[in-house]
């Protein structure tokens, strides 16, 4: 490994960003993904990059499937679930996700909502969603879910998330609400990227109670983490 790539990798790890190295075993030529993009002398095609990224998201090191002699080393931090909105659903989602192994962060500038009493043990951020997300540096093993129902809070968060390598972006709201949201994002020039948003959020389990919606969201996040998926 070249020292320059090592330094890049070490910097990403020190910054708590998930990173990956792809090595051609024949000659040791490498490429590093540091959260921002790919660097190095090894050129990978889009399909290879996508597969390597999927392995990183699932924290799986190993030989790249269907390609001879390419090894992927995943340096994944624990998956993060970043929730916009200290809503009722969030009160169930946060502890469930922590039990499932996620680091959970709740962002809501409304301090009476995002209070330690309502969210014991959860990391709370009271800044505006886009500022908070910039500070958190969304990486490839981060999932972002918006639950406020309020475009003033949800939209800036979604815009930030769409510009990031987050493996999952979900937004609460009906199909009708989502159609309006897509229209607003299209006006902001994000028509194509908006297809990454899972909405209505969560797997269709049939439950309507906040705790059941929390289960469906967590289930979908886990499914996408391991299986990948284009939003329905």
């Amino acid at each position: 490994m070249k020292w320059t790539l090592f330094e890049r990798l070490q910097r990403a790890i020190a910054n708590n960003a998930s990173a990956a190295v792809v090595t051609r075993l024949d000659d040791g030529v490498q490429a590093v993904f540091d959260g921002g993009g790919w660097e190095g002398d090894l050129s990978l095609d889009d399909a290879q990059k996508a597969t390597a990224l999927r392995m990183l998201i699932a924290d799986k090191s190993g030989m790249l499937a269907n390609v001879e002699g390419l090894f992927v080393r995943a340096y994944a931090r624990p998956p993060r679930l970043i929730v916009i909105g200290a809503a009722h659903i969030s009160q169930f989602l946060a502890p469930m996700a922590m039990l499932a192994g996620f680091e959970v962060i709740i962002i809501d500038p409304r301090r009476s909502f995002a209070s330690a009493e309502r969210f014991p043990g959860v990391t709370l951020m009271h800044s505006w969603p886009d500022e908070a997300l910039a500070q958190l540096k969304i990486d490839a093993t981060s999932a972002v879910v918006t639950l406020t129902h309020d475009p003033k809070l949800d939209d800036p968060a979604l815009i930030s998330a769409l510009g990031s390598p987050a493996f999952y972006i979900g937004a609460l709201g009906s199909k009708r609400t989502h159609a309006k949201r897509i229209a607003r994002l299209a006006e902001a020039g994000l028509a194509d990227q908006a297809a990454r948003i899972h909405a209505p959020v969560g797997l269709d389990l049939g439950g309507r109670a906040p705790r059941e919606i929390a289960v469906s969201i967590l289930a979908q996040v886990i499914q996408v983490r391991y299986r990948g998926s284009a939003p329905a």
Binding site: F6, Q10, I13, D59, A74, Y75
Partner: peptide, 14 residues
């Protein structure tokens, strides 16, 4: 599995 790296990389730097 960043843990391995967190242990080993600082030693490499030293």
């Amino acid at each position: 599995m960043a843990t391995d790296a967190e242990e080993i990389f600082p030693q490499i730097e030293r």
